[in-house]
Every structure is written in structure tokens, then in C-alpha cells.
Design a protein around this nucleic acid. Structure first.
Lengths: 226, 226
DNA sequence: ATTGAGCTATCAGCCTGTCTGATAGCTAAG
DNA sequence: CTTAGCTATCAGACAGGCTGATAGCTCAAT
């Protein structure tokens, strides 16, 4: 029989409040002081309850601003691996993603239909056009769409799911799109090489192109971390 | 970039402690007071960190008794990918694990200390002896230990965590150890090749040996599924 | 009128001291 | 040998104070 702790009750109350008020993601909740009065609990108890909701990805507590409903629920892949400082593991995550993506490319070369390559080419056209008009948000989207097309062409659901999880986690800890301009700029040629090699069903060339692509990204991440 | 709070660092420290000490589920951790001294943080901060780990199912904090490592840690990797029939995805998981492990081997060749290779050689000796006396349970254990040694030598915690998750999931859906006898028998030579290539810091040879190793395993899994 | 610097109110992060309640082990009385 | 009670140790909860981050305001310089 599990004991019921006050801090858990607090978490339940706040969670119920969000549901009752139908608060949208990003909405602001009452402040710590108000909750202390409302629930008649001490500060630390309240904060423990909040921490629980935070760990569950339901709310975000921001220093100097307030308490907010979470924008998007994270997969918490890293958390379940016992890793809490995502920033310190950016490079490691990149290495993992590199391995997964290389495998996806290999499988895509072997199994993908011709139509899949046409879709990739379309995304690459978007990429080129967006880059020409310096719309870096669109570049980012086209890039993501291109890579997603590769993953899906590989026909391995587990692999696709994992790569996406890694991508989401990376994205969360990489919130300045400015950093990516130069990366996108430098890596476009490699994208074209990659697609061409895949269409030729040339495994070695495809992997080599991907390797060049990763090299550019890795460089900028290393610069960012240091 | 997300702000880093002390309580989150605390959670990371404690979870790192569990990993470092290799604490088994149910094991008791140092008390609140000891952690306060050790980490030099206040009680409320420490308790928030503990609450986070509690929410993640890593520890259990029991009033009047202490802090303990959680008994059951469910990873639910596949479930969170929306995959419910693990057996139907055995081959896909194998492909993913293959990609991850190849990366681990590559990193180990580049970064591992000599002592790590000695540990691997030790596990391989156990492997050989167990095989000689036809103790297939011990063979299985030695094999697992050998591979684990590789992962840990690669120095990438995210990678190690993911591989272990994959291994756990695979193991759950692979319930007849009898099927593995012939696999182990056929793949021993490849293990030796792999280790030798790694010691020579020969990336290509190591990957080739691993490829042969995977080939044998894959064959038997395919036979099993069909 | 616009901009910018500085002040101020509000917020969460973190710390300390204190008390309560739960648990387990010891001890002494029956 | 059993058991009731004492005690040490632990976490749970609380109040209040300090720090640092944030945002909005005021007011002076342009």
C-alpha cells in the first residue's frame, strides 16, 4: 500500500486545474504564492509537486516569468537513459543520429522505390528555392522533409521512430536557428551528391556523401558547445 | 537554449551515481543529509531533484526508511514508437542494433584504452571455456559481457543506453535460449577477429568482422521468424 | 515623438532552521 | 522468549529570507 504524499496531491490538484480551466499550451498558471495560499501548502511542498509535473512534461517553470503549460510533450528519451543535461551530450546524440541515419540511407539505397527518390528531389528543389530567397525557416523545413523522406524510404519503422526521437531531442536543445544558416549553406551540395548516389544505388558513394554532410554539421555543433 | 537549474543537475548527479556504483534495483542510496553534504546543496533543492528522479521511475523515496533504486524500470521504447508486436519487428530491431553497435565499435577503435581491450579478451576467454564445457548459459553471459565492454569503451553514454534498451527489448522477445547454441558456435571466430582488429586500431577490419558476426545472427533470426 | 537607460515590482531558484511523522533496532520488563 | 517502550534515524512539511531573472514603467537625452 502506497503512502500518499502531499506533494503528489498538489501535483494532482494543479493538473486538475489545467484540465478544468482547459488551459492551452503556453498558458500561464497562477504563481507560486497564489498556489501556496490556494492549496494551503508550504513552498517546498508546492515546488516538489511542480517538479513532478515538470518531469512529466505537463508544465514548464521559468525563473523570473512564471509557471506555464508545456508547449509540446517531449519523448523523454534522454531522461529514460538517465541523462539530464542534454547540452552536455549534444555531440554524443549527433554521433548516434549519424549511425542511425547512415543505416537508413543504406537500407533506402537497397529497398527504396523510384517514387521515393522523386519525392526527395522535390524537397531538394524547395531547399534550393528557399535558400535563394534567404528564407531560412523554409530551408530548415525542406531539409527536414528531405531527410524524413529518406528515413521513410528505408522501410524500417523502428529506425524511423528512433531517428525522429533523436531529432526532436536535438531540436529542443538547439533553439537558435541563426546558427544553422551557415550549416545549411555549406551542406547543400552534399545533399545533391547524396540523392544522386542513392538513385544510382551506389551504397559507397551515398555513405561518403552523407559523411561529408555530417562533417559540416558536426563542426558547427562543436563550435557551439565549446 | 534551456536554462540549467541546480535541481536538475542534482538529479543528474544522483542518477550518475547509480550508474557508476552499478546499484541493483532495491539497493539503498545515501540519505538526504549525506547528499546535502556531498553535493553541497540545500535540502529543498535536493528534494526537487529526487522528486524528478521519482517521477521518472528511477528511484523511490520512502518516508522513514530512505531512498532506493526502483524495482522495475520499464523502458517502453517500442511502445512509445507505437509498436506493439515486438516479434513482428525483430528484424528491424536487429538492423537498428547493428547500426548502433557498428558505431560503438568505430568509436571504441578510436578512443578505447588498452585496458578496455584486455577486459574484452577476458570475456572472450570465458566464452571459449564455457563453450568447451557446453554451458550455454555461461556462453550467453560471456557474449553479453564482451559486447557490453565494447559499448562502454566507446565513451558515448547515449549510445550505450540506446543499445542496452534495444538489447533488453530483443531479449524479451527471444525466449528460447536453445535457438542460440548454433549462433554462438558459428560466431566465436568472428568475435576473435573483431577483437584483434580493434586492438590493431583497424577500423575497416573491425567493421568487416562485425559484419560477418551479424550475418550469422541474422540468418538464424530469419529462420526463426519464418 | 522616439529611443534608451535605469528603476522597480514580480516572479522563481535556492538556502536554512525547525517541527512532525514514520520506521527499525535496541533494551528492559513481564 | 516475548513484548512494550525508548531512541536513533530517516523523510515530509513548513516559514521565511536571500539571490537572480524578467518585464514593464518612468524619465531624461536626442
Amino acid at each position: 500500500m502506497k503512502r500518499l504524499y502531499l506533494s503528489d496531491t498538489v501535483a494532482g490538484e494543479i493538473s486538475a486545474y489545467i484540465a478544468k480551466e482547459q488551459l492551452a499550451p503556453g498558458a500561464r498558471l497562477p504563481s507560486l504564492g497564489e498556489w501556496m495560499e490556494r492549496l494551503e501548502v508550504g513552498r517546498s511542498t508546492l515546488r516538489e509537486g511542480l517538479k513532478k509535473l515538470q518531469a512529466e512534461g505537463i508544465i514548464e517553470v521559468v525563473n523570473g516569468k512564471g509557471i506555464f503549460v508545456s508547449e509540446q510533450r517531449t519523448f523523454q528519451l534522454l531522461a529514460s537513459l538517465g541523462i539530464h543535461d542534454a547540452r552536455a551530450h549534444l555531440l554524443e546524440m549527433l554521433e548516434v543520429r549519424q549511425a542511425l541515419e547512415a543505416q537508413a540511407i543504406l537500407l533506402a539505397v537497397r529497398h527504396a522505390e523510384e517514387t521515393a527518390f522523386e519525392a526527395m528531389a522535390g524537397h531538394l528543389d524547395d531547399y534550393r528555392r528557399a535558400r535563394a530567397r534567404e528564407d531560412f525557416l523554409a530551408v530548415s523545413e525542406a531539409d527536414a522533409a528531405f531527410h524524413l523522406a529518406i528515413y521513410q524510404a528505408c522501410g524500417n519503422r523502428v529506425l524511423v521512430g528512433l531517428i525522429q526521437m533523436m531529432h526532436d531531442e536535438l531540436y529542443l536543445s538547439w533553439d537558435s536557428p541563426d546558427d544553422r544558416h551557415e550549416v545549411f549553406d555549406a551542406s547543400f551540395a552534399h545533399h545533391e551528391d547524396l540523392l544522386e548516389a542513392m538513385r544510382r544505388r551506389d551504397e559507397q558513394a551515398a555513405l561518403a556523401a552523407f559523411d561529408s554532410l555530417v562533417g559540416a554539421t558536426r563542426k558547427s555543433v562543436e563550435a557551439m558547445v565549446s
